[in-house]
Write a protein that binds this DNA or RNA. Sequence first.
DNA 1: ACTCCACATGTAACAGGGGACATGTACCTA
DNA 2: TAGGTACATGTCCCCTGTTACATGTGGAGT
Lengths: 182, 182
Amino acid sequence: MSLRYGLLGLLAEGPASGYDLARRFQEALSPVWPAQHPKIYAELSRLSDAGMIEVDSHGPRGRKAYRITDTGLSEVRRWLTEGEVDHTLRTESVLRSFFFWLMEPDDLQEHLRREQRFFTETADLARGYAAAKDRGDFGTSPQTRSMRVAVEAAIGFYQALADWAEWAQTVPPAIPEGDPES
Amino acid sequence: MSLRYGLLGLLAEGPASGYDLARRFQEALSPVWPAQHPKIYAELSRLSDAGMIEVDSHGPRGRKAYRITDTGLSEVRRWLTEGEVDHTLRTESVLRSFFFWLMEPDDLQEHLRREQRFFTETADLARGYAAAKDRGDFGTSPQTRSMRVAVEAAIGFYQALADWAEWAQTVPPAIPEGDPES
DNA sequence: ACTCCACATGTAACAGGGGACATGTACCTA
DNA sequence: TAGGTACATGTCCCCTGTTACATGTGGAGT
């Protein structure tokens, strides 16, 4: 259901087309909740059926313009305050680490270096985004304020993963432990 | 495909029944890759069809015993070294934060307190698990060594999320910014 | 006016995951 | 020995998400 509320939340900022929403998901929300356009269009028609959004065909340049209704607005708010938070987390990166013992030490080191680089770059990217927000309009609207909070979370856990990958490289791969010279 | 490799990885440690595998997923892997038994049994039969595992019906107490084949073992190894890492991450917690501006300040504070508590508890749980490993057999077998690395990752990002939730409580909810008295 | 391209909206087919339900088996206890 | 309970294996259906494909539209350049 998260996609549904993601759409409602974005529409709470103002009317938008399906294309706009897909773009915003890609640009802002993708690090924490990826969504492709087929799913978005499908969900929009369901939201429309449920009376949570209104559709204005023939918006600017043939775009459809979706606008949130009062029903929709109170539904997001209800979700935010009363809805159970789903804490499910899936990270293939960490799942793999359970099986590191199956890898050759050299392959493992190379793998961890790559992972560290990836997480560091992602964290830096988010940091840059946050910095831009700060220079520009952090503090201007409640939306950008919220955005900053979200970005800060992303920075935090990508940095945590980067640190982990770096630390993992220092963990000795095997355990001689009194192993008599080979 | 991660579930498939998770199963192969666990079976690389030794033969196990479907029930055993489900239990291990629940106890050890669930924080990073939840999986329920229906999925596991289905995947096991697919793995068996693919010749990556062998089934011995009539193991101890009517359990089926699954054993990894050479094909299966080299397939996990291939995945670990050559397979593209899927870095997809979905966190409803953080998605919600994009829409915090829609919440009443009091509700938001309450929400963040709850989140902080949840993440702190999860991190502590993982820490306790790691400590047990250290006291007992950290360093004994390559498997437990890998486990420790995995648990360390979990501690890291749950702690990062806990810190974030704590920090977010200190962010002022609105932006007076020269707002003239009310 | 024509054509091309970026913008924009969709459909179809498939893969993965979760909840509910069904069944069977061994062991323990009354 | 009858019944209960924890162990164990499986099926079914639905929901979510992804990839590939199909279509339509407006504006910019020639």
